[in-house]
């Protein structure tokens, strides 16, 4: 039926109206024709899907299975199925509890500080535009260095003997230096400072972009109406930024909850677990090969927390889009 005879329209004028294909054949060929898009899509998708599937999707699912097991990460340490044992112990393990506590404290302080500073600096840059490009670039600088290097730079800054912070302290206030990384709670606060230093530039640019989306006319109108600076900030700037703020908050929690690099290189969790974080805990347990089961279970816990927060961020982003539309 593929070769259709061309009707001779002049000879048999109305013959051309009759359909060539039966309904059944038409449907079958239509389906086969539509299927070509699947073949094409498969061609374009498979490179990514293979990498993603093998190295992310399958491991994620495997991880759930692993959380009911102990060991199996290296040869000589066979995997043993332990049921819900790991999960019950996540609740009671004191080291993990400390790690979660530290991480939460860190997340709270770091985000509060970095957001406050970022919004403050962003509004300054938004107002004083002269040379703002230089300031933006300079503030962005810490992001260039890998977290490890950023942390190492601060390793010099906070050194007990020659760190500039202690030099200043000794000169200005007097007395002995501060053991920034050797005492609690200084160590965790130092980690906070390092991470705030690293992230500040990003969030300044982030909020600056948000501020610049506040309509200029709105500001001008409020000014004409005699609204003071603080009032304008509260009544116009904050409402405009609020959807952005919530989204940013969720994203920041997701990122900061994974704190690891600077902890690993600066304090390795110490002193006395004072800077132990969740990811540090997972890494430690996995690759010191002690109680890997607990690490398996906490990995999945982390995964669930992040997935929930991701869903929340999408929801917030969707709401923001809706509002803009």
């Amino acid at each position: 039926m593929t070769a259709v005879d061309a009707p001779a329209p002049e000879a048999v004028p109305d013959d051309w109206r009759a359909p060539t294909l039966s309904d059944a054949e038409y449907r079958w060929r239509a389906r086969r024709y539509r299927f070509r898009t699947v073949r094409r899509a498969a061609g374009f998708l498979s490179p990514y899907l293979i990498v993603w599937g093998v190295f992310l999707a399958i491991p994620a699912v495997w991880g759930i299975f692993l959380s009911f097991n102990q060991g199996g990460l290296i040869k000589g340490d066979p995997r043993v199925f332990v049921g819900f044992d790991n999960w019950t112990r996540t609740v009671s393990d004191s080291e993990l509890r400390t790690a979660v506590k530290n991480t939460s404290i860190y997340v709270l302080i770091a985000i509060a500080v970095v957001f406050t500073l970022a919004i403050f600096l962003a509004s300054l840059l938004n107002h004083y535009k002269k040379g703002s490009n230089f300031y933006k670039v300079a503030l962005y600088f810490p992001l260039l260095a890998p977290p490890i290097l950023g942390a190492l730079m601060w390793f010099f800054m906070v050194n007990f003997d020659f760190g500039i912070l202690n030099l200043i302290k000794r000169t200005v206030i007097g007395g002995d230096g501060i053991r920034f990384l050797g005492d609690n709670p200084h160590a965790l606060l130092t980690i906070v400072a390092v991470e705030v230093w690293r992230g500040l530039g990003f969030w300044v640019l982030f909020y600056l972009a948000g501020l610049q989306s506040v309509p200029e006319e709105l500001q001008a109108a409020a000014k004409v109406d005699g609204a003071g600076k603080w009032r304008r900030f509260r009544r116009i700037t904050v409402p405009t930024l609020r959807p952005l703020l919530l989204f940013a908050l969720v994203i920041a929690v997701i990122f900061n909850f994974q704190l690891f690099d600077s902890v690993q290189v600066l304090t390795d969790g110490g002193p006395r677990l004072g800077t132990a974080t969740v990811v540090w805990f997972i890494h430690k347990r996995l690759f010191k090969f002690q109680d890997t089961g607990l690490a398996y279970a906490s990995s999945i816990g982390l995964l669930v927390v992040v997935l929930v927060l991701t869903a929340l961020s999408f929801w917030l982003l969707g709401k923001r889009r809706q509002r803009e539309a």
């Binding site: 259709v4 061309a6 009707p7 060539t20 294909l21 038409y26 060929r29 239509a30």
Partner: peptide, 11 residues
């Protein structure tokens, strides 16, 4: 159906 020069081209 769509035909061009008598050939069915839908698919």
């Amino acid at each position: 159906e769509i035909l061009i020069d008598g050939e069915l081209i839908n698919f």
